[in-house]
């Protein structure tokens, strides 16, 4: 086929204006989130003491951190879906790391040393570890589906970003169930729970996001 002929075929296939990738990704996460929300209410449910919890700074900070991460990871994910990806796409996550580090520091200062371990281990670690990934599966599938429209410079990295984004979706639901609000717990167990999603995203991205 000659290039001019290909051009004719491409012109004939000129697509109508489509929804921007960012908006599609937002809708996809919302759709995946609804599935996870159903799982959340079937399996976990909101903690019974949600009212008083909302009045504590630890709970509010936990939710704020997870939501901040969600917003930042969304940006990372979009950056990674481009062929001309910025040189350091993960730089966007620095504010999250800074807030997390500050929260951990405040907790270490305000809680006596003897209580550190209790805070760190918490009571729900063994629920957190499986449930955050389970609540992330539907958002991950939805995000990967949308990202197939993109042209990621590194499919593996884009998949990893999608995994992180999905894990934060799951975590933002899980945060409303869990009693463990200490930044020590969040920094440790939420990170560990996100790790398998990032790994799954990387592997899936390498396969599904090639172009």
């Amino acid at each position: 086929m000659k290039t001019e002929q290909l051009v004719e075929a491409l012109v004939a296939d000129r697509p109508a204006a489509r929804r921007p990738l960012a908006r599609s990704l937002g809708w996809a996460l919302a759709a995946g989130g609804v599935v996870s929300l159903a799982v959340f209410f079937l399996e976990l449910g909101i903690r019974p003491d949600i009212g008083p919890a909302l009045a504590t700074w630890r709970f509010d900070l936990k939710v704020a951190m997870v939501l901040l991460g969600l917003v930042l990871a969304f940006g990372v994910c979009l950056d990674c879906s481009r062929p001309d990806m910025p040189r350091h796409p993960l730089r966007r996550l620095l504010p999250l790391l800074a807030v997390l580090a500050a929260a951990v520091a405040i907790e270490l200062v305000s809680v006596p040393r003897s209580a550190w371990q209790g805070r760190l281990v918490g009571t729900n670690a063994m629920i957190c570890l499986p449930m955050v990934p389970i609540l992330s599966l539907a958002p991950l599938a939805a995000a990967l589906l949308i990202l197939r429209r993109g042209a990621p410079a590194s499919p593996a990295l884009a998949g990893a970003a999608a995994g992180l984004l999905a894990a934060l979706c799951g975590a933002s639901l899980y945060a409303f169930h869990c009693f463990d609000d200490s930044p020590l717990f969040v920094a440790t167990w939420y990170t560990l729970a996100a790790a398998p999603m990032v790994a799954i995203g990387t592997l899936a991205g390498r396969r599904l996001l090639r172009w």
Binding site: M1, L6, L10, P20, L21, R82, P83, R149, G150, W211
Partner: peptide
């Protein structure tokens, strides 16, 4: 060239 044109066509959602 053709492969790139195709990619540009099919992946234009990734252009902002």
């Amino acid at each position: 060239v053709q492969e790139t044109l195709l990619a540009m066509h099919l992946k234009q959602d990734s252009w902002n």
